[in-house]
Amino acid sequence: MNALYLYSGWVRAWHWLNALLFLVLILSGASMHFAGTGWLLNFEIARPIHNVAGILVTIGWIGFVIGNLVTDNGRHYRVHLRGFFQRLFSQMRYYGYGIFQNEPHPFHPSAEMKLNTLQQLSYLGVMYLLMPVLILSGWAFLFSIYLPETLFGLGSVWVVAMTHLTVAYFLALFVLVHLYIITTGDTLSSNLRAMITGWHRETHPESQG
């Protein structure tokens, strides 16, 4: 049994708050987008819920970025080019093939590197590319009168709406894959436990390559 303290208190608190807000935003956002469909929230209720959750997720995102700047959590998001493609392909090969052959995980987290290369790339894309676009387009919805009347020859509000919608679909997709990948740890629940307790445990450290 090998245990590593990988997720500090603030990271876990931020993660679970963000997770809750994501669910609220997806539900209330879908309720506004597909308003009139039976099983969703009432439009009038969904609108302020979505806006408040959006404001909180913005604050959370700023906190996440600052946290990564002032603590050593930020190093997990710095891409190391040496052996990058080899690590990426071995991770992809594992999910696409090795996992069905009961092969051991190709990657073992350490205090210096807790994210595998595939994980690191998707989190970078989500947190530093999609999230800023989502947040900016969300705020642009609220303060659209400060935008020019048209962007790229199209009405600004429509451009903002389509950007927000597209990014929202990508992030909903991310949540689905993320939820599934949680179960691919050492046991079905070991990754989930790690994000709750902060401790990453591997039961067969001796099988490390």
Partner: peptide, 19 residues
């Protein structure tokens, strides 16, 4: 404004292709 955004119109973000 940020919390309530009364201006939002039902279906404003809808786009059949993207959906």
């Amino acid at each position: 404004k940020a919390v309530f955004n009364d201006a939002y119109v039902v279906g404003m973000s809808r786009n059949a292709t993207l959906d």
